Simulated scan of single mutants.
Amino acid sequence: MKALLRHIVDKIRTHLMYSTHQRLDKLSMLLGRQLSLHNSHLASKATLGGGQESIPIESSEFSVYSQNGEDGIIDFLLHILDLSEYPHAFVEFGVENYTESNTRFLLKLRNFQGLVIDGSQKNIDYIKRDEVYWKHDLHAQCEFITKDNINAIIQKWLDSRGLDNVALLSIDIDGNDYYVWESLTCISPAIVIIEYNALFGATQSVNIPYKEDFSRFEAHHSGLYFGASIRALIDLGKHKGYTFVGADSSGTNLFFVKQELLKNIQPFRIYPLEEYCKRHHARQSRDKNGKLNFVSHTQRNDLIATLPLHNLQTQH
């Protein structure tokens, strides 16, 4: 009898939690739709001949599922750019369980097709149990991404959907991001979002040395040693035909747009690169026991100052 009652209580609790989650999700999406309308008006000011000042992309930020306002910036760029030549599709890797991501709002609001990749099978299994997985054309794949396998992974998905490109690419793998974007040739998205390491500063074009099995917290216990500097990624973007259009206000992600798509757009407001590094105040560093130690300001730089960096300026 007790087991039966416990089973009934668990069922009721699960139902109530699910119902509450559903209602909160609907409210979040409703708010997101209203903010998207605001971005539509903001985008109309950015057309050439509008007599308006340049607009910083941070002014369009909002988060429904993203961590740092990326939902709003992506939404704004989609309002302002002519993507008629691009399929309504995206690729995002480093998504964890996809509850917090850069493309979930895009998937639900605009019904894009998508490929999401994560190195944890547990995360991929979670995504496949999420109702978003059957309500939309979302493919979740477990892979540890390297510069050598990324093209084959994406090409296989493209072929399965009859696609030859995507509109948006989001890269956040906490390590070899630069090398993966550099190696990527099977797609040429309209928009690229990529995480940068603000601690590497604005003057150096540097990234971590490539290691196929790089792990952020194995490389250094603080987790602060990863990725590439802002200058390195901007230089790479130029080489691949992209224009840097700004970063989120938290100093986490850079946004790039294909150069030819900006011909009839009022230039975005770009600040000195040092500004994009100074705005990063996150204190996510950890001690040797894996606990947050809230190190801030120049102490963060001191922790990783002796670790090797690949200087891309001397390479060229």
Rank of each mutant, 00 (worst) to 15 (best):
L27A: 15
F105N: 06
Q315S: 14
L236H: 02
H88L: 15
K240G: 13
T146F: 11
L309V: 06
A89L: 08
S249Y: 05
P189C: 05
A190K: 02
A198S: 10
K278I: 14
M1G: 14
R286S: 05
H136R: 09
I171L: 05
I150Y: 04
S183N: 05
S183T: 03
D82L: 09
L115D: 03
I194G: 00
T103V: 03
V116H: 06
K128M: 12
T185W: 04
L254E: 06
Y18S: 13
N68E: 15
F93H: 03
A305R: 03
V166F: 05
Y65N: 14
H21R: 10
I173N: 02
H297I: 14
H280C: 13
G223W: 12
E143H: 03
K238I: 06
D137M: 05
I194P: 01
A282R: 14
G32V: 01
G237R: 00
K11N: 03
G119V: 09
A247W: 01
H280K: 11
I55T: 07
I153V: 01
L37V: 01
G227F: 11
L107V: 07
F256R: 00
F294H: 15
H221K: 10
S249F: 08
R286M: 09
D82R: 06
R300I: 09
L303E: 05
S188M: 08
G50A: 03
I270K: 04
S285H: 12
L312D: 03
K122T: 09
S229D: 05
Q284N: 15
S120L: 11
D130S: 04
E195T: 00
L42T: 00
Y276C: 03
D148Y: 13
I57P: 10
F244C: 11
R279P: 14
A202Y: 05
L273R: 12
D25K: 05
A198M: 02
E218Q: 13
L254M: 14
T99K: 09
F217H: 08
T298F: 11
N311T: 00
D213Q: 15
I187S: 11
N151S: 05
Q121S: 13
V206Q: 01
C186S: 02
L106H: 09
I74H: 09
E61R: 07
L312K: 02
S296T: 13
G51A: 03
L77Q: 07
L199P: 00
E58K: 09
L81D: 15
S215T: 13
A140Q: 06
V132D: 09
N149E: 04
S160T: 04
G32M: 02
A167R: 06
L78P: 07
W181Y: 07
S285Q: 12
K122F: 00
S63R: 02
E85F: 12
R283Y: 07
T306L: 06
G32D: 02
V295Y: 10
K2I: 10
L77Y: 07
S120G: 10
S120N: 13
Q121C: 13
D287Y: 06
T252G: 01
A190P: 01
G72H: 06
N264D: 15
K278C: 10
H239I: 14
E218I: 10
A305F: 00
L138W: 07
Y18T: 15
L236N: 03
L307W: 04
S54Y: 12
Q34E: 07
H38I: 13
